[in-house]
């Protein structure tokens, strides 16, 4: 392509159309990450089903640990793909944000599942309560490990998802900070009672949406005034 050629309006339009079209055909998803996670999660799910159905033990080894191990090849794949990538589209950038936040949320849920039983027992223990269960057939009494489900904690994860995705995709710091704080509030909510969960929900609403919303409103009004 030469530089100083005198362009007609039609030629200009043709260049614009041609270049935008060239970009459209330049990016193809390799599918490697999807294959990796599809295989790992698929295997873990099916293995857990077979294990429950045939009632056998794998000792200390939980097959779902494989999902943690799979993070290693995922990191390698991500580095390799980012090295090979010559362009970053807006769509790809937004999709990266979606999958990153999805990953964080999955780990937040895993954290919730592991922490809540111990916290639930502590709540009862504080009131001097120990829960027991009795086997009707044998009469055997054993400790019952409660799991106090807190929907507020789950809601906090849900609040964080769209905020952090929007913040990352649009590079809007108030929403990135809001989303991160919301995940931190989720961690706190795993250890406190329902009453404090409500306080955390209120804080999350203010930090997650109200403050970024006011900043956006301010920017919008400034833009309108110009």
């Amino acid at each position: 392509m030469s530089e100083e050629k005198n362009l007609t309006e039609q030629e200009s339009l043709q260049i614009i159309t041609e270049m935008i079209h060239k970009v459209k055909g330049s990016f193809h998803e390799s599918g490697t990450s999807a294959i990796l996670w599809g295989s790992v999660v698929g295997f873990c799910g099916l293995f857990s089903f077979v294990k429950a159905h045939f009632d056998f033990s794998t000792g200390w080894f939980d097959v779902w640990f494989l999902t943690l191990i799979a993070i290693v090849p995922q990191v390698i794949i991500s580095i390799k793909e980012s090295r090979q990538r010559k362009i970053l589209t807006y769509e790809e950038s937004a999709m990266n944000a979606v999958w990153l936040v999805f990953g964080i949320s999955i780990f937040a849920l895993a954290f919730y599942n592991n922490v809540v039983p111990g916290v639930s027992e502590n709540f009862y223990a504080k009131d001097g309560i120990e829960l027991l269960q009795r086997n009707k057939a044998t009469g055997e009494i054993s400790a019952f490990h409660p799991f106090i489900f807190s929907e507020s904690s789950i809601f906090l994860i849900l609040y964080a998802i769209p905020t952090l995705v929007t913040g990352l995709a649009r590079k809007f710091k108030p929403m990135i900070i809001g989303g991160i704080i919301c995940y931190l509030l989720f961690i706190v909510s795993c250890f406190v009672s329902f009453q404090y969960d409500m306080l955390l929900q209120g804080i999350a609403g203010i930090i997650n949406w109200l403050i970024p919303g006011l900043i956006l409103r301010n920017m919008f009004l400034k833009g309108k005034a110009c």
Binding site: M1, S2, E3, E4, K5, L7, E11, S12, I15, I16, E18, M19, I20, K22, V23, K24, S26, K86, I87, L88, T89, Y90, E92, S93
Partner: peptide, 30 residues
């Protein structure tokens, strides 16, 4: 902008968040 190569570069960059120099060179045949 009213120059063949600069317009081509801008048309490429308007459609992406960022692009490597080699990619632009390849697509603009420059």
């Amino acid at each position: 902008l009213h120059s063949q190569l600069r317009l081509a570069v801008m048309s490429l960059l308007i459609a992406v968040k960022e692009a490597e120099f080699t990619f632009i060179r390849e697509k603009t045949n420059s």
